[in-house]
Design a binder for these strands. Sequence first.
DNA 1: TAGTCTGAGTTCCAAATTGGAACCCATCAA
DNA 2: TTGATGGGTTCCAATTTGGAACTCAGACTA
Lengths: 155, 155
Amino acid sequence: MRWQDIDQHPCSVARTLAIVGDNWTLLVLRDCFLGVRRFDQFQQRLGVTRHVLSDRLRKLLDGGIVEKVAYQQRPVREEYRLTDRGRALYPVIVHLAQWGDTYLPHPLGAPVTRIHTHCGAALEATLQCSHCGEAVEARDIRVEENPHWRGKLLP
Amino acid sequence: MRWQDIDQHPCSVARTLAIVGDNWTLLVLRDCFLGVRRFDQFQQRLGVTRHVLSDRLRKLLDGGIVEKVAYQQRPVREEYRLTDRGRALYPVIVHLAQWGDTYLPHPLGAPVTRIHTHCGAALEATLQCSHCGEAVEARDIRVEENPHWRGKLLP
DNA sequence: TAGTCTGAGTTCCAAATTGGAACCCATCAA
DNA sequence: TTGATGGGTTCCAATTTGGAACTCAGACTA
């Protein structure tokens, strides 16, 4: 199968990754959440080549994760801003950052700390069940296949 | 910059993505969490070519995310199992799946439901602050640069 | 005893994608 | 008039991928 066909897949993870699962795209998103908005700024920070960046930003646009907003007329200059859909991916970035901080620590410490502005504490995200409020680990989860795909998706 | 150099980066997200941020690797991980363990099973489910799969599994091994365990002797056959480090990536997969279910819904509904075995409810993960217990959104977070990189990492 | 099957890869080649660099275009500023 | 600036596109060589075939060790089968 080609990578470009995975957006056809019934799995939600696969369809999501068809937009953001690419080598550079999650780093572009990380930068979006740090407030980066302009093409050249992404390019300099990531060191990715310009046409790859151009292609990835187009995919994020097509997926509705960022939108182009003109920040000046004459000459028209546009920047890329996260949409609400895009901001909903924040937990993914936070958990990737936390995993890295925990398991691949940098000798000089974590480069940034995320502060929850409402309470002032450093954010430590855990997977929590919104029903019972308990912290959830992978072993506490059972996966149920929905009737239409019975026997087709699970191993 | 080459993609292969991003593991040098001070950013924890970048270093994490150096291991899992590849086109196919997060799908391999998704399958790990569904219980897939054997080379041919990954290969058939993903449709990825064998040498790409071989390469990705090696990176997951090197990153300590999976380990090889012999499930029979003579001939020795080994399977790939998640380590504790690997299981700690579960929130990433869960949030990717939830995002896909919400924003790229499949006409036939979500393919699988994750049930929290302790309480029996379908898991709906939210990003929560472990200090105050409140649900956290991207706009509620302020990023603080740690002293050593002052002025170098943030835009 | 030869032939075939299985699991887990490795090797080969053509096709697609990337990295690097240069180029383009509209506008502003000197 | 020349040169920046921002946001790209175009070109080519080098790398990576997709697809298919091959390997290898042991087991099963007739």
